[in-house]
Design a protein around this nucleic acid. Structure first.
Lengths: 363, 363
DNA sequence: CCTAAGTCTGAAATCGATTTCAGAAATCGA
DNA sequence: TCGATTTCTGAAATCGATTTCAGACTTAGG
C-alpha cells in the first residue's frame, strides 16, 4: 500500500443546479417544476414541455437527500449476505438488484461472513441510512436483530429458506425436503452405506443444517441412521470437500454414497475421489447441492439440487416493493427446487467390493 | 409469481424519535444534542453524559437524509460491476465493502451486464442518490459517462486495469503484460502451435482484449503471429470454453498450447479436452487467467495468472475514502499479478504427434 | 469588588425539494 | 354576457439536523 501522493482531487466544481434555478429560467415557481417531475399529468402539457426543456438544458437532477427528508422514503433497500464468494448468493443479489433497479430502487450491500454480530452491526448501519426495506439470508438471526428490525418498522424478508421464525416472512426452498428426496433417491438406487459432508461449521448456516437434517431423517426412516463419524463437518471451501472425503473414507472405507450439502464440497470430494483412484459413480456416488454452473460440466456431471437463486432475488425484490408501498404481501413463498440427476450417482456395485472387511464398527 | 395476498405490512409504528425529543427530555436545546453527537469535546462533560444517557434511553438515531441534506455528504459509495457471477468481481466487491464499512461508509451496488448503456443509467441513478464516490470496472466507458462523472464532481476510480483513459485513476493489474509473460513462458517450454480463447464478445470487456493483445504481441515478437482462425471468441461461460476448444482443434488439430483469457474458459476447455481424449498437459497445454478457487483443484491443476481481487477492492476503498476527505491520492496504482505455474502446462510432446498432416494452411 | 477574557449554550437560519392551500385563469352553461 | 365550475399555478410551510452568531455565565486578574 505504498501510494505516492500525486494529485489532489478537484472538489465539486459547479455549485449544483437547484430546483429554483430551473424555476427561474422557466419563469415558473419551484412548485411547478416539482410537479412536472413528480406528477406530470396535472401540469398543462405545453408548460410541462417547456419546464422539461429547461430541466434538460440545465441537466438538473433532484437532490435525493432533500427528497428523502421531505417524503420520508429513501427508495433504497439493503441486503446482507453471508458472503459473495458463493455464486448462489451473488446470483441472488444480482437478480435482486436488477429487479429493484427497474422500480427505481437502489441496493445497499453488506456481508456478514456468517457472523451474527457483524450482521447486526451492518444492519444497524443500514437502518441508520434510512433504508426502506431489508433482505436477509437464512433463518438464524439473533433476537437482538429481530427487535432492531421490529423497532425500526422496516419491512424485511429472509431468503433461501422456506420459513423463518419470529414472524419474518421468507422466500426460498425447503432445504430439508430437498436433501430428503435426494437421499431417498439414493436409497432407491440401492445404497446402504452413506456418508455426509456438510458445511455446518458456521453457527448461522441454517440452510446446511436443514439439509443435513433432511439426510439424517431420510436415513433414519430407512432404518439406516447416520453415526456421527459418517458426518463430516466442513466450511464452504473446495479444499475442505477434499479433506472431508478423505476422512470419511478413512473411517468408513466401504461407503458407496456421499451426500454433500454444497456443490463446492461435492466438487472437492469428486476431485479427491479421482485422486484416490475411486471411480465415480461406479465405486462411489457423490451428490451436491446448488447446481452451480460447473456442476453440469464436471466429469462425470454432478447430481445435485437446483436452487432458483435468481427467482429468489426477484421475489424478494417484489415482496419489498409491495410491502413498502403498503400493498398486501404473502407471508412466505416456497419455491420449488429441482433434483438434477446426472452421472455422478448410480446404483452401488455391491458385488465387486467386499461388503465388510471385518473391522469392528466402533474403532 | 402467484402470491396470495395474505397480510398487510404494519407501517412504521412509532413516529420516530427526533433530536428535539431528546433535547426536551434532557432540558437542553437541539443544538446541544447535535454537538454531543458531532463534536463531543466542546460540550461540558457532565452535560454531555446526561445528553448521551437520554440519547440511549430513547434509542435516538439521526435521520441520515436530514444529515446529508445539511452536510452535503452521504457517506455512501457506489460500485458498478459487469456482473457478480464472476467470482473475481464478487471477491473484489466484498473486500471493497468490508473496507468501506470500517470507515463508516455504505456501499451501493449495481451491475451493467457488460452493457455501456446500462452502466450509464445505473451511474445516473447512483449520482442522483448523492453518492460521494464511485467504483467502476475496466477502462471502456462512454464519453457520456465520463462527462457525467466530471459534471457531478464525484471522485471515481476504475478497477482491474492498470490504466484508464480520460484522466480516470485506476487500480489493478497490467493484463496485457500478464498474458505476454504467460505466452513467453509457453514459448520457452517449446510450444510453437498456439491457440487462444478469449471472452471478447462484450464490447466493453477491455480486460480480456488487453489479455488477448498480450498473447498476440508475444507471439508476433516470436515470429509466430496468430491467424484469426487461431483465436476463438467467446463469452464468459464454461460451456463456451468447451465449444471454443472443439472449434479450435477442428481448425488446427496440431495445436499444442491453448491460452485462455479466463479460468472459466480454461476449465471448460480442459473438460472438453478430457472428453476428446486429449491428455493435458502431455498432448495439450492449457492456461487460464484469474486463479479462481477451482483452478488449483483441477486435475491437473490449472496454470493461470493470479489476480489480487481483494487487494484491488481494498485499494479502491482507500482511494475513495482519501479522495472524498480531500487528501492527496495517487493517480493510479498498478498491483502485481502472479503467474501460477501448475501442471496443466508442460513442454510439447513434439515427436509423438505428426507435425503437420499436409492440410493446406488456409482452407 | 469590578472588568476582561474565556467557556458554553440556545435561538434561528439553513440545506433543497415537496405539498397544502388559496387564489387566478380558463371553461362551460344559461 | 355573467356567474359557476373546473383547472392550474404560486406562496409558504414543512421535513430534521447542523452551525453561525450572539448572549449568558464563569473564572481570573487588577
Amino acid at each position: 500500500m505504498d501510494k505516492k501522493p500525486v494529485i489532489a482531487p478537484k472538489g465539486r466544481q459547479q455549485p449544483r443546479v437547484k430546483i429554483e434555478d430551473v424555476a427561474r429560467k422557466a419563469n415558473v415557481s419551484p412548485a411547478t417544476v416539482s410537479r412536472v417531475l413528480n406528477h406530470p399529468d396535472i401540469v398543462r402539457p405545453e408548460l410541462r414541455d417547456k419546464v422539461m426543456r429547461h430541466i434538460n438544458d440545465l441537466a438538473y437532477t433532484r437532490d435525493s437527500a432533500a427528497r428523502a427528508l421531505k417524503s420520508g422514503r429513501m427508495r433504497t433497500v439493503g441486503v446482507i449476505v453471508p458472503t459473495l464468494a458463493l455464486g448462489i448468493f451473488a446470483e441472488g443479489v444480482e437478480a435482486l438488484q436488477n429487479r429493484l433497479s427497474e422500480s427505481g430502487y437502489t441496493l445497499f450491500i453488506a456481508n456478514s461472513q456468517y457472523d451474527q454480530r457483524r450482521e447486526f452491526q451492518e444492519l444497524q448501519s443500514l437502518i441508520e441510512r434510512g433504508i426502506d426495506g431489508i433482505v436477509l439470508v437464512g433463518a438464524s438471526h439473533g433476537r437482538e436483530l429481530r427487535s432492531l428490525i421490529e423497532q425500526a418498522g422496516v419491512p424485511v424478508i429472509t431468503t433461501y429458506v422456506a420459513k423463518a421464525g419470529g414472524g419474518i416472512p421468507a422466500i426460498g426452498i425447503d432445504n430439508e425436503s430437498a436433501t430428503r428426496e435426494m437421499t431417498e433417491y439414493l436409497l432407491r438406487l440401492g445404497h446402504v452405506r452413506f456418508g455426509a459432508i456438510a458445511n455446518v461449521v458456521a453457527a448461522s448456516n441454517d440452510r446446511s443444517r436443514a439439509r443435513l437434517e433432511g439426510i439424517q431423517r431420510a436415513l433414519s426412516d430407512a432404518g439406516l441412521p447416520l453415526k456421527p463419524s459418517q458426518i463430516v463437518k466442513a466450511d464452504y471451501s473446495l479444499a475442505q470437500g477434499r479433506s472431508a472425503l478423505r476422512q470419511l473414507l478413512t473411517d468408513h472405507p466401504d461407503t458407496t454414497a456421499v451426500i454433500c450439502t454444497t456443490d463446492t464440497l461435492a466438487i472437492g470430494a469428486m476431485a479427491e475421489a479421482r485422486k484416490m483412484g475411486l471411480a465415480v459413480p461406479s465405486t462411489l456416488s457423490i451428490t451436491g447441492f446448488d447446481d452451480v454452473e460447473l456442476a453440469a460440466q464436471m466429469d462425470p456431471p454432478l447430481t445435485t439440487v437446483s436452487v432458483p437463486a435468481a427467482e429468489i432475488g426477484r421475489g424478494a425484490a417484489d415482496y419489498l416493493i409491495n410491502a413498502i408501498a403498503g400493498s398486501p404481501v404473502p407471508r412466505s413463498v416456497v419455491l420449488p427446487y429441482r433434483l438434477v440427476m446426472r452421472s455422478s450417482s448410480a446404483p452401488p456395485r455391491s458385488s465387486v467390493r467386499p461388503a465388510r472387511r471385518g473391522r469392528s464398527r466402533d474403532h
